[in-house]
Amino acid sequence: MLEIKNLQKVYGIPGVSAKPALNGVDLSVGQGELVGLFGENGAGKTTLLKCVLGLLGYTGTITLDGEPVTRANIARLSFATCEHSFFPHLTPAGHRDFYREHFPRWREKRFQALMDFFRLPMGKAPRSFSTGQKNQFEVILALSQGADYILMDEPFAGNDVFNREDFYKVLLGILEPTETVVLSTHLLEEVEHFVGRAVLLRGGAVVGDTSVLDLEERGMDLMAFVKSAYGYEPDRVSRALDRLTEEGEEDAP
């Protein structure tokens, strides 16, 4: 169980240029869950994932099966980011050897199968890959690390729709019941059938947390849930247009 309690993160210098990014986040993610992390830009999704990984300092507590995240258990977490965390000059074969050494539960068979499926060359440095291929490679590494918790931050930014669809299908097919995925993305409709739970962040706090099954029972889709949690006003655009048209008429000579 990944447990986050009262997580707070402030960027900048307190009292001078402090900018709160996370404001008391409470979240529990059980093993085997597929969680979608949604929210507008600046909602705190990336910051939350980086705090979980220990890449950023924070106040509050983050535990993995009751233990704080340290070098002793960090290998239970993997991370795929659209910024790409692989070594750009190291070939996939080189990555395989390196990861095998540092992550004791490295999944050799899965790595090879995914590399074959996406037809990525083993001997070519990923810096020369296309954006789509780089994303694929990033996710392949995260899935092959042997982690219990796979954190993904907009992993498919730049991939075409067919490519993304393939990936979701493959993901659903290969994930074991004990593997947990926390996927941060803007592509609500696409992941609706992939995630089992949706967590919504706004202004650094959780403003919505529901299972997709609950939504279906309530006759709602993910987009409707997000809109309602965000207090989206459907007539906002028409009201703005009306106002603009009225102003235009007043301005006319």
């Binding site: 990984l53 890449l55 960090i74 290998a75 910024e83 965390s85 750009p88 004791p104």
Partner: peptide, 19 residues
């Protein structure tokens, strides 16, 4: 500029079994 200067690569380097 071996590639390890990129911010995202730090995410990997900071998750290894060595400090």
């Amino acid at each position: 500029h071996c590639g390890d200067e990129r911010r995202a690569v730090g995410c990997t380097l900071r998750r290894l079994r060595v400090s």
